[in-house]
């Protein structure tokens, strides 16, 4: 099944205006946004959509306190939609919606939808560093930094992390019914999953958790590289947003990360430079812990320069 990745996440929020400002400050582009909510797009058209939690257009939440109401995945073609509809209809309701998409529910109770992907192809080089000997370098006289006024936009909806009450059952659904592959695994916690139409290390990560925890740990968009991620995260903190973890670089997937709290009852991440894998990749299994969670971890600092009036211990005061 050629599921290419996440297309759209729909949240029911407590405060539409605050949530809208949060997503715009993160770098997403508002599309058709009113005081009732709307869509916030990355460069390729993948998006997060918000509406007030009382909006009757929203599907029900899978558990109390979970603000994610629907996860929409994109497929390469209509034939994949039909194949998924046929597969899931064997044991659950599959709705055909007026826009041609289908809607059902996964084995953990999360509402899922499938549509021919909205992803718009685009060509925009990622960050390139000038490394001696490298055949690929930045053009002469082009600058490596991102100017203070240069916009930084997320490129594509990357991945979503579910807390699920039964990680084995949840994994079996995505692998056996929808054709996902496990690329790596935290032992006793859950798998990183890649759909059949993507090479990204993961579009889903499942974490087994007690039933009252069911919901979302985080979601994230891919940025153009570590410079963009660090510059965008720095700007985000300067606007008062509260970091949770990072910046750093994960080991499984190699993605740079920076996590923040959000008004969506979950964290939001900025990620960049995730590994690509195909079916020849042999999944790793590692124990959960700090050493296996990142190759390094930094903490945001205010800007600083040596000179008169500085602390006696300097930058590391």
């Amino acid at each position: 099944m050629k599921i290419v990745g996440l297309d759209n996440l729909i949240f029911g929020v407590d405060n539409v205006a605050d949530s809208a400002r949060f997503l715009a400050d993160y770098g997403l582009t508002p599309v058709d946004v009113t005081d009732r909510g709307g869509r916030f797009e990355a460069i390729d058209g993948t998006s997060v959509e918000i509406a007030h939690q009382s909006d009757t257009r929203l599907p029900a939440a899978p558990a109390p306190g979970c603000r994610l109401r629907k996860t929409v995945m994109g497929t390469a073609d209509a034939a994949t939609i039909d194949a998924i509809a046929a597969e899931l209809s064997r044991d659950r309701e599959v709705k055909r919606l007026p826009d041609g998409s289908i809607e059902s529910v996964d084995d953990s109770g999360f509402v899922i939808g499938f549509q021919v992907t909205v992803r718009r192809p685009f060509s925009l080089a990622g960050e390139i560093s000038n490394a001696p000997g490298s055949p690929i370098m930045r053009p002469v006289n082009s600058l490596g930094i991102i100017g203070p006024d240069a916009p930084i936009r997320p490129r594509s909806l990357s991945h979503l992390v579910y807390f699920v009450p039964d990680a084995i059952k949840a994994e079996a659904f995505y692998v056996n019914r929808l054709g996902f592959r496990c690329t790596d695994r935290f032992a006793g916690v859950g798998p990183f999953l890649q759909p059949g139409g993507s090479l990204d290390h993961h579009t889903h990560f499942l974490i087994g958790a007690p039933p009252q925890v069911q919901g979302v740990e985080h979601f994230t968009f891919h940025f153009g590289g570590p410079n963009e991620l660090l510059a965008n995260g720095y700007r985000f903190t300067q606007k008062g947003y509260q970091a949770f973890w990072g910046p750093g670089r994960h080991i499984l997937g190699s993605n740079w990360f920076w996590y923040f709290n959000s008004p969506f009852a979950c964290h939001i991440e900025m990620d960049a430079d995730m590994d690509l894998h195909d079916a020849t990749w042999a999944p790793r299994e590692v124990a959960l812990g700090a050493d296996n969670s990142q190759t390094f971890l930094f903490k945001m600092r205010e800007k600083w320069a040596p000179g008169p009036g500085i602390h006696t211990n300097g930058d590391y005061a």
């Binding site: 605050d18 949060f22 606007k239 008062g240 947003y241 509260q242 949770f244 923040f260 709290n261 959000s262 008004p263």
Partner: peptide
């Protein structure tokens, strides 16, 4: 785990 999503929020 710090709790606010924005300063004082």
């Amino acid at each position: 785990a710090p709790m606010a999503w924005r300063r004082d929020a």
